[in-house]
Design a protein around this nucleic acid. Structure first.
Lengths: 393, 393
DNA sequence: GGGACTAACTTTACCAATAAAGAAAGTGAG
DNA sequence: CTCACTTTCTTTATTGGTAAAGTTAGTCCC
């Protein structure tokens, strides 16, 4: 992009790279960040002079001069990640290398008149306990209009044009990044998961809602108004159940948590949550059938998306993956059945999941900014990078 | 990206910009190409010294120093665009500003043992008649594996791993760019159509097949293996008709040309082509019903895609648009019905279409390379730019 | 007609990154 | 031990582009 306004982007990218994957040689850094060796030599020299990097051991030679590994000196960056739901907040503290240092959970009412104040205070409380960090990432089940400002539209929370970013920044005096929850997961996946080796992939989430994030050419695609990835609202049934979005027959209404429970009750099962349904499935064929059918519908719809987007890998995440073995029967056959020939070998991977995964995604928003070559995170990203350079003694 | 290897990218971008939209002031150029005014001053100075640009009239002042418009001197670039189908080739000659200078059509048999030889000769014949040009763009109904090489997979043509690019380059001694046909249309749209004002849009094509191209952040998204946009193979019916791809119930099998005819005959109409069906529709309600139903299915599926991709505009193109008034009844209501609230205001535009439109898209591949900041077109793109700089006297 | 203002350009100093060429530090074959 | 070769890193000259601070040429208003 620019020649001079990239700020410390490249410098911080080196620090962040070493922070996330551990010591590397100069050549490896160059390869990883798509720089010339000359540049890496220059920048690492500066970083070493500033006391942020040190030379470590020599790698055994592979037929030429042995590689000199470089390692981070001093504290690696840390960030806070916040997941906002209609009932509670989950906050995690994550180190640059992905290690979770701590997690907190508090009840939260997004419809309270001063919801943003409550949110700010909850985060501030956690912050009080710890040394300064790079920034705070927040993910919400909705769309983020202008990422630089952080205006949130989230029907699930009853939020419309909520100035979440602005408010948090004023209270916390830290860079604050906002993003849709599924997109945040995709950022985390790009930083620590399948994205390290793939530039084009899909992240699918199942749980209360159903979502998708599209990673194209290594970047999370946000769409014209930050609303890309509303996979849950692809129509799958002409006269399907009413969805929370007001439309009938959305995928989410059919295979989301509420849809599963409804479908189970229609079959005479007395369950009120997906967890109960999952527990029942080990012994009850009808319960398994509910999952299988959901898997079939999800699989068919996913196949369509794969045909349109042509990813290398699909990663499945979300609370719903707990019951994945039951989904899988239907899903696998449906996907393979509906994929175009030549794409049937696509890898579909279900990754581990726990309660803090969403919040970890949010933290990744901050920890990924040093790699954000396009400067998409804007002003907030620049601030994060400035803190990374400034923090290490 | 790089500092030094961008070649003449910016210089050619200025030439191409003036070629496509006509004379502009330095400030306008800077705005359009996302450069600083200083850079534009420097580069235009060089281009004027080289005799490629001239200063024209002064624009009336808008409160400050009046803008000095700059215009191209000498011949603007021209390119050839080739559309390959199972029956014939359409070739057009297009000037940088989008003007079509000529068009040719010849029968073509892709299954002939020397199909690539036939193709090369057909293009060479046309080339023989004209002064040298920037390059040749070729679009095919299929996917292009490695754009730099130009290896084509196109089931419709019976082509698998066909080295089209390689062969043409050797015969023509010109830069040759290959692309999927719908993606090529999207490039043209980006250069001359809605893309001039929108960075995120969808191109939908209806006709023999059904396709889509996704333009995200101003770039045509090609997917992991160049196979993005296979919208025609999204599943829409559980027990639908068999599609050419070997799967049952694809959108294309239902609302593609063959699907429409089949559906019409099921209803007792004696038609063998969509053209006949279209002619009949003006007087026959059943024929109209066929289109309306197809429009409904297309609309519902498109709404799903819009929900996932969140574009600003959708452009509908293709032979099938001739009957659009009949599709529209079903399409419009289905789309509005299935779109998430807040997206219902999306603009859907049907553009004019003629037999050479596909080939014009192919030519746009070449004419757009000067703007291809990411250098996606690789070596061939660089050659096109070199020719643009070299050609103008 | 003379400031105050504004928009369009230009100059200058500088910066980030590169290519190209070379130095450094090993391996392995004869 | 020496020579050819490989890989890693460094040096140097150069490039493409920028920000910041002019300069130029108008308008508008008194």
């Amino acid at each position: 992009m620019a020649a001079t306004d990239r700020g410390d982007l490249t410098r911080t990218a080196i620090l962040a790279l070493l922070g996330t994957v551990g010591p590397l040689s100069r050549t490896e850094i160059a390869r990883e960040l798509d720089l010339s060796p000359a540049t890496v030599t220059q920048l690492t020299k500066a970083l070493m002079a500033a006391g942020m990097l040190e030379e470590l051991d020599l790698q055994p030679s592979r037929g030429g001069r042995p590689a000199q590994r470089l390692g981070l000196l001093g504290s690696a960056g840390r960030a806070l990640g916040v997941k906002v739901t209609a009932e509670h907040l989950v906050i995690v503290e994550v180190r640059l290398d992905g290690d979770v240092l701590g997690s907190w959970e508090t009840p939260f009412d997004p419809s309270s008149p001063d919801a943003l104040g409550d949110l700010s205070e909850a985060v501030a409380d956690v912050l009080g306990q710890m040394p300064p960090l790079l920034g705070v990432g927040v993910c919400v089940p909705g769309s983020v209009d202008d990422q630089a400002v952080g205006t949130v539209n989230a029907p699930t929370l009853g939020w419309q044009a909520m100035p979440v970013g602005d408010r948090l920044r004023r209270r916390l005096k830290l860079p604050v990044l906002l993003e849709n929850d599924v997109n945040a997961l995709a950022v985390a996946e790009r930083l620590y998961g399948r994205g390290r080796t793939h530039r084009d992939f899909l992240v699918l989430t199942i749980g209360r809602g159903v979502g998708a994030a599209i990673v194209a050419d290594g970047r999370v695609y946000r769409g014209a108004r930050g609303g890309a990835g509303e996979f849950g609202h692809v129509p799958v049934a002409v006269d399907g159940p009413l969805c929370g979005c007001g439309v009938y027959g959305c995928l989410e209404a059919v295979v989301g948590a509420a849809g599963l429970v409804a479908s189970a009750r229609e079959r005479g099962l007395h369950v009120t949550t997906v967890d109960e349904l999952g527990a029942l499935a080990s012994s009850d064929a009808t319960a398994r059938e509910v999952f299988t059918e959901a898997g079939t519908i999800l699989g068919r719809t996913t196949a369509g998306l794969i045909n349109v987007v042509d990813p290398e890998v699909v990663v499945v995440l979300g609370e719903g993956t707990a019951n994945w073995p039951y989904w899988q029967r239907g899903f696998d056959t449906a996907v393979r059945h509906q994929l175009m020939p030549g794409r049937r070998d696509i890898e579909i991977e279900v990754e581990s999941w726990d309660d803090t995964s969403w919040a970890q995604g949010a933290a990744a928003l901050v920890l990924a900014t040093p790699f954000d070559t396009e400067g998409a995170a804007g002003e907030q990203g620049r601030m994060v990078r400035a803190r990374l350079i400034g923090a290490t003694p």
